[in-house]
């Protein structure tokens, strides 16, 4: 049967049965007109995709008023960082992201290892319980989370922002790591066992090192989801001392009608970490977001 596993909890936590985007190869035919039309479409749609990005970049580099002189104004970024407090917001985001990524990936490796390589009672039921979580949107859980964590004194803490996101990421991560562990070579596992490696040594010294690509993809996806998350930090930290970067940007936008260059510079800063990592390791992003659900 197929696993009905498509992402709800975290945007793009999905599960494509499609192959990873490989280089497209077509037949050698195709008239010159077809090629020309293809180039036009290629360029037009690339420009459409980049348009809004360029708009913000240009605004971020523009002087606040015409009187301030011309030429790109890199100082806007420094102003956003200090006056706009984006430095502070980015630090909060980094802290939350580190907690979520480390916790979610470690827990997912362990649970995926159990589901992927061991047999035990209740395995199927428990696995489907995790699959359920991939589809649950944050909108459904955020209301009780706020009231319950407030009574525990966990709102306005890093834990209150991070733990719900760890839970969401663990649902996808368990699914993702299980798929990796199921593809690992059985004989490798047997050989390690015969060498006297216990389950811990087998996992941390054998399977994790060779599973680096799968783990890297998971790290990047969880980092992206956490960095870009908006609803959970908005709800869980109402006091305002713990503002993640997207939250800081949204509130800055709401508060100041002036300062559009500063706002744009802040927007660039907020987007930058994920975009830079994406440009360097894009294969992981595209593969991770499109691929996922393997047929069972």
């Amino acid at each position: 049967m197929s696993a009905p596993v498509l992402g709800g909890a975290r945007p793009g936590a999905a599960a494509g049965r499609g192959a990873a985007a490989g280089p497209a190869r077509g037949p050698s035919r195709g008239s010159a007109a077809h090629r020309a039309a293809s180039y036009v479409v290629l360029v037009v749609f690339a420009l459409l995709a980049l348009g809004p990005v360029v708009t913000v970049l240009v605004a971020a580099l523009s002087p606040e008023s015409a009187a301030a002189g011309d030429g790109p104004r890199v100082a806007n970024f420094a102003d956003a960082w200090v006056q706009g407090r984006f430095g502070q917001y980015m630090a909060t985001s980094a802290l939350v992201a580190v907690v979520v990524v480390v916790a979610a990936v470690l827990l997912s490796i362990m649970s995926g290892y159990a589901f992927g390589t061991m047999e035990f009672r209740g395995r199927e039921v428990l696995f489907y319980l995790f699959l359920l979580g991939i589809m649950v949107p944050a909108e459904a859980v955020v209301v009780p989370l706020f009231f319950d964590l407030r009574s525990l004194g966990l709102t306005n803490t890093v834990w209150g922002i991070a733990l719900p996101q760890v839970a969401q990421s663990v649902a996808f991560g368990t699914y993702w790591m299980r798929a990796y562990f199921r593809t690992t070579n059985r004989s490798l596992i047997e050989a390690a066992r015969l060498d006297g490696a216990g389950p811990h040594r087998l996992l941390w010294s054998v399977l994790v090192p060779i599973g680096r690509p799968a783990i890297t993809t998971l790290v990047l996806l969880v980092f992206m989801w956490t960095w870009n998350e908006f609803l959970i930090p908005l709800v869980m930290a109402p006091a305002g001392q713990l503002r993640t970067a997207p939250l800081g940007l949204a509130l800055f936008q709401g508060q100041y009608t002036q300062g559009t260059s500063l706002l744009a510079a802040g927007a660039v800063l907020v987007a930058l970490p994920v975009v830079v990592v994406y440009l360097v390791l894009q294969r992981h992003f595209i593969r991770g977001m499109l691929e996922g659900a393997v047929r069972e």
């Binding site: 793009g12 985007a21 280089p23 497209a24 077509g26 037949p27 050698s28 195709g30 077809h34 090629r35 039309a37 293809s38 180039y39 479409v41 290629l42 749609f45 690339a46 995709a49 980049l50 809004p52 990005v53 708009t55 913000v56 992206m224 960095w227 870009n228 908006f230 970067a245 997207p246 939250l247 940007l249 949204a250 936008q253 706002l263 744009a264 927007a267 660039v268 907020v270 987007a271 994920v274 975009v275 994406y278 440009l279 894009q282 992003f285 595209i286 977001m289």
Partner: peptide, 30 residues
């Protein structure tokens, strides 16, 4: 695109996929 042998498809893919990785708040500001 898939059957036309144009160059630059990998770059095209990188560019058109970009909106997926930008925080929605930034997209909204833009």
């Amino acid at each position: 695109l898939v059957r036309s042998r144009v160059r630059g498809l990998p770059l095209f893919r990188t560019v058109v996929f970009l909106p997926q990785v930008i925080a929605m708040v930034v997209v909204a500001v833009a």
